[in-house]
Design a protein around this nucleic acid. Sequence first.
DNA 1: ATGCCAACTTAGATTATGTCTAAGGTGAGA
DNA 2: TCTCACCTTAGACATAATCTAAGTTGGCAT
Lengths: 156, 156
Amino acid sequence: MDAAAIREKLEATGLRCTPQRYTVMSFLMAHHDHPTAAEIFAAVNTADPRLSRATTYNNLRDLVEAGLVREVATEGRAARYDATGEQHHHFICDRCGKMEDIPWHPVPSPTANALGKRVVRECELIIRGLCTQCAPHRRTTPKPPTSKPSNHRSHN
Amino acid sequence: MDAAAIREKLEATGLRCTPQRYTVMSFLMAHHDHPTAAEIFAAVNTADPRLSRATTYNNLRDLVEAGLVREVATEGRAARYDATGEQHHHFICDRCGKMEDIPWHPVPSPTANALGKRVVRECELIIRGLCTQCAPHRRTTPKPPTSKPSNHRSHN
DNA sequence: ATGCCAACTTAGATTATGTCTAAGGTGAGA
DNA sequence: TCTCACCTTAGACATAATCTAAGTTGGCAT
Ligand SMILES: [Mn+2]
Ligand SMILES: [Mn+2]
Ligand SMILES: [Zn+2]
Ligand SMILES: [Zn+2]
């Protein structure tokens, strides 16, 4: 994807296309290995030191809010634990961050073709949406749940 | 599950059933809301202050290693980012922690019955096992990948 | 053109979470 | 009874993320 396309993508969501923001977005689109904020900062800042650490975090947050980027494999900063009883799937609420158990049902593994030489141990489903608490509020007060997760940005 | 059963569970894996460890395990088995280490510490320590913060973390690590407990929704401490292109699933390597994209294929959503009033937005698969790099080593040098994730405990 | 102001960037302080260290306690078995 | 591996602990340390307060930029109204 070329520079103009990225600029458009950003501006379509109401974000200014600053050099810092452009570089972060561009880096993410060029690297499919799910880099961390620290990795992005290190790589980009080395090539062009016009990007600070705080701005890396700020921009990642903006891009996630804008839906151009997503955060994977973690919801909130702290690890969460689960006494391993029966196998089950998980539901994570977009609004309040709650993680709930969903009864197990087997899911189809990808084709051997898609997996290559990888060895599969388990296949679990992460379902995202609104929990029973939050679903009714969908069209009314969609504000965060008073405390815990999903920190939204006010910027200053 | 009664006290004796928990004690047996622990001792079957070679772990002593100390008051601290028993309480952590028992708490986890009684609470299905995926508590964090901090939450477990706060709850248990308030009821009976014989549990320290370090021991909470030590015991959670021991229980995870023993397979009695699992850590969910995070692999490593830092958030990882993904420019949202096409929808895809993820493969996470048990050995080196690498997170790789797996081509999308639709997965069956749980029954409406299992979901209740929850509103589903997306359904993604987390596949765990050994990546192509790590799979060949399965029966040979199974040592960790030099750095990054999967910290194992030596205890002292 | 000029000035304004919200959007943006920044260094550094602060908070949150997790790990390590060094010291001491405990108990199963010789 | 002695011993030693297993366990617990306070507090120091490390890392990831967020906040703060100040400065910069640039689109736009005048
Ligand atoms: Mn669960
Ligand atoms: Mn991905
Ligand atoms: Zn919710
Ligand atoms: Zn691997």
